[in-house]
Amino acid sequence: MEKVTIKVFRGTPEEGEISTYETPTFPGMVVLDAIHYIQQNLEPSLACRWNCKAAKCGSCSAEVNGHPKLMCKSSIEEYPSGEITVTPLKTFPLVKDLVTDVSWNYRVSSRIPPLVPKPDAAGKPFNMQQIDVERVQEFRKCIECFLCQDVCHILREHDRTDAFYGPRQMVKLASLDMHPMDNLDRKESIKNDGGVGYCNITKCCTEVCPEHIHITDNAIIPLKERIADEYYDPIQGLLRKIGIIKRTTKQPFDSVPNEQTTVHSAR
């Protein structure tokens, strides 16, 4: 392939269309290179986000031929037809061209309190074994590209941003709830604020995750199970009542002040 045809969405929420550009190709080229070529040579005002160009920052998310992808991790050679369509993430409000307003994700994230160390671990070096932190480390690989948020039908088709935090935040909640030193009882919040029950395990999020995090199997399903144990399991409930197993000893969710963070939006 000497040349590739790039069809890019150009426009604002008011009006827009697909514009077609031709760009030369070079070895190893990725879709983001094509977008940069267009910016530098054909259309300087073409808007896109990027930072690292190394699949580490999660900025360059877009839909390539309809699939949520990092543009810097999508090789041109994956598209042998020589025609590639690039459109913005559909789930989030459009700003311009390939840029969408993803600030909702940050607002939701700021409602999740950070780690609250257990009293006997607070203020001193943690003693934890590698095997006990590995599970959490998988979740912490997340680069916040929001591709999983984009693909999840609860947000994408049903627009339930009011009820469900989305797979990215389930991963974050799991990383805290399964942290060996966290002392905050997050279950109620995971259920009521996070809306984990809305997920019906279609696994679409896992498929698009560029960090290969097993979002559904390792984060969401265990969270669902923890909550089911706590709220619905009759045997556990009984044992708890007669004091054989204790209710969680973690400190209540509302015992930490939720400091107000405001994520401002330009519009």
Binding site: S110, P114, I143, T262, H264
Partner: peptide
């Protein structure tokens, strides 16, 4: 943390910062 220490550091500080309360202008 493996070969992604920078990510761990920024995400941790980001989460702590928004938990501490501030005004973020992106």
């Amino acid at each position: 943390v493996g070969d992604r220490t920078g990510l761990e550091l920024i995400r941790t500080l980001q989460d702590k910062a928004v938990g501490t309360g501030m005004n973020v202008h992106m």
